Simulated scan of single mutants.
Amino acid sequence: MAAAGASGISRGGTRMMKLLKVLGLSMAVMSAMTLAAKAQSVEDIKARGKVLVAMDLGSPPYAFTDANQQPQGSDIETAKLLAADMGVELQIVPTNGQGRIPALLSKKADLVIATFSYTPERAKTVAFSDPYSFTRSVIFAEKGAKISSLDDLVGKKTGVARGTTPDVQLGKLLPKGADIVRYDDDATTIAALASGQIDALGTADNRFLTLEERFPGRFEIKYQVDKYYLGIGLRLGNQDLLDYLNKWVAANMQNGKLPDIYQKWLKQPLPKLPKISEIGG
Rank of each mutant, 00 (worst) to 15 (best):
T135L: 09
E278T: 09
L258I: 09
A3Q: 06
F208T: 05
K143C: 13
G24A: 06
D205R: 04
I147A: 07
T135E: 07
Y118S: 05
G231A: 03
I221R: 00
L174K: 06
K257A: 15
E77D: 14
P175F: 05
G99R: 00
G155C: 03
D85H: 06
Q169T: 12
K264Y: 01
V22N: 13
F128P: 00
V112I: 15
K172L: 15
E278C: 08
I276K: 12
Y244S: 04
R100I: 03
L52F: 08
T14W: 10
I113A: 11
D243C: 08
V160E: 07
K272I: 12
Y229S: 00
E77R: 09
I232H: 02
S133L: 07
N68Q: 14
P274W: 07
L174C: 08
V160W: 03
R11Q: 08
F116P: 01
Q91D: 10
D167I: 10
K227M: 14
A114I: 06
P271E: 10
S148W: 05
E278G: 11
K107D: 11
N246Y: 12
A79D: 02
Q224I: 07
R48D: 08
D179F: 06
K38L: 14
D130Q: 14
P120V: 06
K275E: 09
Q70C: 01
D130Y: 09
A127H: 01
G217V: 07
L173S: 14
L170K: 09
M17S: 11
D186N: 12
S74C: 12
L150G: 10
S148M: 08
T203W: 01
G281E: 15
A4H: 08
T65D: 08
E142Y: 06
L273D: 01
K172Y: 14
D56W: 03
K264W: 03
V138F: 02
V249H: 00
A141S: 14
K176H: 09
A4C: 06
D184G: 02
L170M: 13
T189G: 02
N96S: 11
V42N: 08
K267G: 12
T119C: 11
N252D: 10
R235V: 03
L81T: 06
L170F: 12
Q69H: 13
W265A: 04
R100E: 12
F140H: 05
D56C: 10
S74M: 11
S10W: 05
S74N: 10
T34A: 12
M17N: 09
I147V: 15
Q69C: 07
